[in-house]
């Protein structure tokens, strides 16, 4: 770990100014990912700007009926917030499917968006990695790539974004609010994370110095028909092999609105309007679900160790949609609700 200085400003504009003035600095929220990366020498800022004293921990209703999640509210406080539990249970489920109670107590909402890939090669300084050191090559392509991307990857990088929370936020079409010396702006969730392309070192579209201040959830929470389904290599405390956020609105048997997002498969939570359009206006049947699944996975490409994820993701989508509609659903999901591997 590098040596660094630390300061905890109390105002957003001060924090942002400090970040701009110190190019080698980094913001630190809960620290659960950054300190890990610093211990691995993947990240080596010389100055940390602590965000914990900023007034960004509130969760409050918005005038338009939405909900604002402060960037510094913890994942735990967010998941268990009465408004989130009641109106956005998909988000509650996704957050609780990730990490552990300890980590969720530390990790912040802004930090969750900023967490970096779990790619073995990215984390290991002994191996080349374009994301860590642009131009050195991608070791995962042709290496061990069970946890890598099947969608939206490039020849430069096949890393995945590891978050569960972000998969739900993508489905819910949250809006990311950021501050910079130039003022505030909003970024739609779909545009926040990016695909690796030929700049795999960039995980997102933040401009230099920008600070996430809040996540705004639109009014529509899909609180009735939703599922977050996470498949992983052990029953808890493991990153997703594949995860699905499914949210529907139903009028009788007819789907009137639909959101589908995948985790564990791409450099960002994976959505596709065409897949959701295949659901909307159609009866909630397995046939419809399979069509949507096929569309969402269209163009998926596997590598030596992760090709199975293509079929697994399709099946997981169908299952998640089945669960969301509670259609003929006989599996005892409650028995392992929190421990589905």
């Amino acid at each position: 770990m590098n040596s660094f200085t630390y300061s905890p400003p109390t105002a957003v504009d001060a924090a942002v100014r400090e970040r701009i003035n110190r190019p080698d600095s980094a913001y630190i929220g809960g620290g659960t990912n950054l300190i890990d990366l610093m211990k691995e020498n993947v990240a080596h800022p010389t100055h940390l700007i602590g965000l914990k004293k900023l007034p960004l921990a509130e969760i409050e209703n918005l005038p338009d009926g939405g909900l604002r999640l402060g960037a510094m509210a913890t994942n735990a406080d967010t998941a268990w917030h009465p408004e989130v539990e009641k109106r956005y249970p998909l988000l509650n489920q996704a957050i609780l499917a990730g990490a552990t109670p300890q980590l969720r107590n530390m990790a912040t909402n802004g930090g969750n968006l900023m967490q970096r890939t779990r790619c073995y090669y990215f984390y290991d300084l002994a191996t080349p990695c374009n994301k860590r050191e642009p131009g050195t090559g991608c070791s995962a392509i042709g290496g061990y790539n069970r946890i890598h991307a099947i969608l939206g990857a490039s020849e430069q990088c096949i890393a995945t974004h590891p978050s569960d929370m972000c998969v739900a936020l993508a489905a819910l079409e949250a809006v990311v609010r950021v501050s910079s010396p130039q003022g505030e702006r909003s970024i739609s969730f779909a545009n926040f994370h990016r695909l690796p392309g030929d700049r795999p070192e960039l995980d997102n579209t933040l401009r230099p110095g920008e600070l996430i201040t809040a996540l705004d959830l639109p009014k529509k929470g899909f609180a009735k028909n939703f599922t977050y389904l996470k498949l992983r290599d052990r029953s808890s405390y493991a990153f997703a092999v594949v995860s699905v956020a499914a949210a529907l609105e139903l009028d009788g048997d007819i789907i009137t609105d639909a959101r589908l997002a995948l985790g564990g498969v791409a450099h960002k939570p994976w959505r596709k309007a065409e897949a959701e359009q295949l659901l909307i206006g159609k009866p909630a049947t397995l046939v419809t679900f399979r069509q949507a699944a096929a569309e969402l996975l269209a163009g998926a490409e596997g590598h030596a160790h992760n090709a199975f994820k293509i079929e697994l993701a399709k099946r997981a989508i169908v299952r998640a949609l089945k669960q969301a509609t509670e259609m003929d659903y006989v599996l005892d999901t409650n028995a392992f609700q929190n421990s589905n591997p």
Partner: peptide, 27 residues
Amino acid sequence: CDHGQCGACTVLVNGKRINSCLSLAVM
């Protein structure tokens, strides 16, 4: 583990459990 991957370092901060290995003392 020193990386938030095992929970052995769990302590309570204001009554809430955290991994002390991933927090700086100054924080």
